[in-house]
Nucleic acid binder design. Structure first.
Lengths: 132, 132
DNA sequence: TTTGGAATTAGACTTAGTCTAATTATGGTT
DNA sequence: AACCATAATTAGACTAAGTCTAATTCCAAA
């Protein structure tokens, strides 16, 4: 419904490089990580272009920004709705695919008076490694 | 259970000032807001002390840090578990008191293998003002 | 092939927060 | 009261992350 079609082939080579860096990464990347890796593909790419491209690609729905306490913003190739767990000790971030009941989001809309665009549950705790 | 007792009267005057600023505020404050207001009470207080005090008070459980996408960290006098809604357009943050079913947090622990210390649902959308 | 808008670039700039080293305050002991 | 050890505070330099600006380059359509 209403979701605009994206023509990836029409992206500039810089945007294609940035997108492929995020898509090829096994984990979430910071803007700086993306910059480092994009330079391997396209040595002349600038820092600002990486930021611009990440914003553009996010606005187009081709990738997702994740904002978690403390550190820098991370970029995620997984664009469908999902949640995150963060380890308080080592900072590891894990994707979670939780079913949040409609009753919860309905209550949230109701209580806030907001029109929901997205929602996310964030769990903070200790990962299995950090618990010993 | 096991929650250590806090003796507020034993706080330094700087920490008391910082705490009272957060407690007297109607809304969430950034560290800079706190600094500005604390200076009214205690003109000699330094920026670093505000940061140190906020960290100390957070560690003692006397206030809560809230990290939301983009902007600076905000400080909240409300220390019990609760959720937040953020307006994508004006940045307004509203506290929500949602009941998150145990089944959801259990699924999150299960899927992540994390030991949960806290969790929060963040709703992003448009507040009633910004929807016109 | 010119031209106008969009994208890119380099680098200065800003914001938010941390770190360090020197100083000051506090509580316990004699 | 004087002394000591420890903790807290201070000023200001520093860092990290990201934004902004102005000049340049690219590209598609006339």
């Amino acid at each position: 419904m209403g979701r605009r079609e994206i023509d990836i082939s029409g992206l500039t080579k810089q945007r294609k490089a940035v997108l492929s860096v995020v898509r090829d990464a096994g984990e979430h990347l910071t803007a700086n990580d993306v910059f480092m890796r994009a330079r391997v593909i396209l040595p002349s790419i600038s820092f600002a272009t990486v930021y611009n491209s990440l914003r553009f690609l996010k606005d187009e729905g081709l990738l997702k920004e994740i904002h978690l306490g403390g550190g820098p913003v991370q970029y995620d190739k997984l664009t469908s709705r999902h949640d995150h767990a963060i380890c308080d000790s080592c900072g590891r971030v894990v994707d979670l695919h939780l079913e949040i009941p409609n009753s919860v989001t309905a209550a949230a809309e109701n209580a806030s008076g907001f029109r929901t665009k997205s929602f996310e549950l964030i769990l903070r705790g200790l990962c299995s490694d950090c618990r010993e």
